[in-house]
């Protein structure tokens, strides 16, 4: 997919662990790990809203579009 998830970068900047984020936004650590690894097929607006609120960032900080080279 051409959408890159930079959640690990933002987490590192905020010095926050995945488990802590999962607990704060009310999703499982497994789901955070799916999101971080880029395996996620979709993200709910409610989840994105919660992540942005907790990490004090914009959706564009987490998601990035990089076109694939063909």
């Amino acid at each position: 997919m051409s959408i890159i998830v930079n959640l690990d970068v933002v987490l590192a900047k905020r010095k926050m662990r995945s488990k802590e984020l999962a607990e704060k936004i009310g999703i499982t650590s497994a789901n955070v790990s799916i999101l971080k690894s880029g395996k996620a097929k979709a993200i709910r607006f409610s989840t994105l809203d919660a992540i942005c609120k907790i990490l004090d960032c914009q959706p564009s900080d987490i998601l990035e579009y990089k076109p694939k080279k063909e």
Partner: peptide, 8 residues
């Protein structure tokens, strides 16, 4: 189902 499971 896979898509649903991988929706966070």
């Amino acid at each position: 189902k896979e898509e649903n499971d991988l929706t966070v």
